[in-house]
């Protein structure tokens, strides 16, 4: 016996295998190329404006005259945080409870099937329609506010949270539930002490996906927050507000160089913000696991 005998023989199969590996590598590049180029252009053009006016870009109010060059984006950052946090507080508890109902109680019942179907339909509703809905139901009655923006984003997040949470609950093996039941644990307590902790990492990352998606939404916010806010507005339930996505839209479509610069800065800020959300959540999930 020598090594040559055990060496892989050249064959059509190994050729195919190499070919496929090559194709997969190519596909990876195709997927990565736009991602890298987006990140590259945002950071190369945004970093300049952000660093040239370092903390001011994050803290100063937005120039009232959009022709003016210079910082900042403070109110939009606060607005995005407020609106997103509000939407998360509305959509995540509701969505998780809804998913618990669907998977642990409703199962294949008529009502559960209907709710599941509606949630699926809701996923397909364009965000601008959701914005319009909140505009009619809330904004026209109670005026512009960050909360209106939160409501619109919550409507967009809700079906994502429901679907991803239900998926995660489905992944919790039944033998874990049985372990608790066999000890004389009630259903509700089993869900609280065994099912939810086991599904938590998945629920957090699913919710985070929804948050990240919502944070970048623009159209519904145009309706709900009002246009033209340049100053800080810490009132959650009252008064026009602004958000990074909205500022990106407004400033990038402006014909003034100063405004366009600010749009790049705002875009970079938004990307970093969304990224740090997910880092925080991952750290949290990791800490809980141990």
């Amino acid at each position: 016996m020598n090594v040559a005998e055990l060496r892989a023989k050249p064959s059509w199969r190994s050729v195919k295998s190499h070919l496929m590996t090559g194709l997969m590598g190519l596909a990876l590049l195709v997927v990565l190329a736009p991602l890298v180029s987006v990140l590259w252009s945002i950071s190369s053009r945004g970093l300049g404006i952000v660093t040239s006016a370092f903390p001011a870009f994050f803290t100063a109010e937005i120039p009232q005259i959009s022709r003016a060059a210079g910082p900042g984006m403070g109110p939009a950052i606060v607005g995005t945080l407020m609106v997103t946090l509000g939407a998360t507080l509305v959509a995540v508890p509701l969505g998780v409870l809804g998913a618990i109902y669907l998977h642990e109680y409703g199962r294949a019942g008529k009502f559960a099937r209907l709710v599941r179907f509606m949630a699926t339909v809701m996923t397909g509703v364009p965000s601008i329609v959701m914005g319009l809905f909140v505009y009619v139901m809330w904004t026209l009655r109670f005026g512009y506010s960050a909360f209106g923006g939160s409501l619109a984003l919550a409507c967009l997040m809700l079906p994502i949270v429901i679907a991803s949470t239900e998926q995660m609950l489905r992944l919790v093996p039944d033998h874990l539930r049985e372990a608790a039941y066999a000890l004389g644990t009630t259903k509700s307590r089993t869900i609280l002490t065994v099912v939810l902790p086991a599904a938590l990492p998945g629920i957090v990352s699913g919710s985070l996906l929804a948050v990240a998606r919502a944070a970048g939404e623009t159209a519904p916010l145009l309706f709900a927050l009002g246009l033209g806010a340049t100053a800080y507005n810490a009132h959650f339930f009252d008064g026009i507000n602004t958000a990074l996505s909205q500022q990106i839209f407004v400033n990038a479509t402006s014909s003034f160089a100063g405004a366009q610069e600010r749009a790049w800065g705002a875009a970079l800020t938004l990307v970093v913000l969304a990224f740090s959300f997910s880092v925080v959540a991952r750290v949290f999930v990791h800490a809980r696991r141990r």
Binding site: H175, L176, E178, A179, A180, Y181, A182, L183, G184, T185, T193, V194, P197, A198
Partner: peptide, 25 residues
């Protein structure tokens, strides 16, 4: 089930500490 316990074919500890598994019931 509080009076009639069950041990399953496949060991099914819950993903908690050894202590918490015993203290669960």
């Amino acid at each position: 089930r509080r009076r009639i316990g069950m041990v399953f074919q496949k060991p099914n500890p819950v993903p908690k500490s050894i202590y918490d598994n015993i203290a669960f019931g």
